[in-house]
Write a protein that binds this DNA or RNA. Sequence first.
DNA 1: GGCCCTGCGTAACAGTTTGTAACATCAGGG
DNA 2: CCCTGATGTTACAAACTGTTACGCAGGGCC
Lengths: 234, 234
Amino acid sequence: MSLHRLLVVEDDAEMAAMLAAYLQRQGFFVTCADSRASALQALQTGRVDLILLDVSLGDDDGVQICAEIRAAQEVPIIMVSALSADHQRMAGYEVGADDYIAKPFNPDLLLARIRAVLRRTRRSASLIHRRRDAICRFSGWSYDARRDEITAPGGWQASLSARETALLRVFLANPLIPLSREEIAAALDDEEAAEGRAIDMLVNRLRQKTDPELIRTERGTGYVFTAEVARDDG
Amino acid sequence: MSLHRLLVVEDDAEMAAMLAAYLQRQGFFVTCADSRASALQALQTGRVDLILLDVSLGDDDGVQICAEIRAAQEVPIIMVSALSADHQRMAGYEVGADDYIAKPFNPDLLLARIRAVLRRTRRSASLIHRRRDAICRFSGWSYDARRDEITAPGGWQASLSARETALLRVFLANPLIPLSREEIAAALDDEEAAEGRAIDMLVNRLRQKTDPELIRTERGTGYVFTAEVARDDG
DNA sequence: GGCCCTGCGTAACAGTTTGTAACATCAGGG
DNA sequence: CCCTGATGTTACAAACTGTTACGCAGGGCC
């Protein structure tokens, strides 16, 4: 069992200290943050396997932070709230939290939930997009994120345009998963692109520069990157 | 938004009926089982996206069933219990349940949890499926789920359309079992397809691309995949 | 067998979706 | 100002898939 890193986002200092102490005793590596800003910084700085996110964070709204993090990363999140009103729980789920727990909670229950979420996500852990990933390999090809270079099986170097690169990254982050044009556009930060056939053309051009087989069409649905992706961390 | 199939495993008939009615109104396709045996049968017969599993099932033990199912399949499971004692919750988690909810529960909360679990599992679902049966062999043919390629006895490669592939997968998952058009349509996640003769045409086209003998017609009933299927987990 | 009815195979067709070439637009650099 | 490359738009061909129509096959009934 590897060491898991938890990020506790909690503005009540005493609560945070208690939690951190308890979780450290249980064998986790715990980082604390007391605001949206410090939470985001912690996420940028180091690896985090799971976030315990307090719903009420003074000025900042936990639900919103949850959505924000989810939009950018795949880190699992457990929401913690002092209010057990159901609509709050709902809000947490809608926004993409992996689980929810109400204060005051039984420490053992918290532990069980953390482990359950970690176990659930571990399976797909290799697919989780990591900031650090420098080189991705997929079916003979490799992509170096640092140099922004793609290398064909034969050693050829193809040069991708900015948008093609962005698209490739989206696919690399979601291998084997069907992506709709809307999802791709959203991932490219360009919702409009889903309107016309810009995505089609993008995919088409990426196909031509790589391997046409790499991206399969799911008629009426979207596209799938058909290769498994292996990552070399820097 | 695709239709999700739920399997409700609950021995209290009244409770089961209520749940089924409620969940059907919410747009789920609900199957019920009242014992370990019927639950396992339901899992064998048709596709199930998520199981609501009662912890106390008369003679059968829900926790044990949960473990049993988990050992064999990747179906997500939500445990339901009348006792909210924490150690029960723990038992559920240890055994591999994806979530836990205590009776009596707020229907909306149940719904939120179902959706949360489905959303969580959706992404990795296709991947897991591909993993599980990477290559199937049947009467000289072989189908590689990863590459989505079908190979004829002679070594020829036939290319199937997306829908034909989906149909083939349904048959591969149910060899030697007569399937009605409704069942096929349901398995294809497209209930409407059972209305007209779309399924007929699908079967027809799959027959033409493979071996006409592979799929036998059961007049007035449906179709049977006539070959045994061997799997190489990849 | 002859008849009829129903269900099925299949060809032809139509609507929709996607591939792709050609063109339009736009920004940046000389 | 033009050239160049990147990117979106358009137009048309090709592929996919459901619908319709027609004919055949199976089975009950006389």
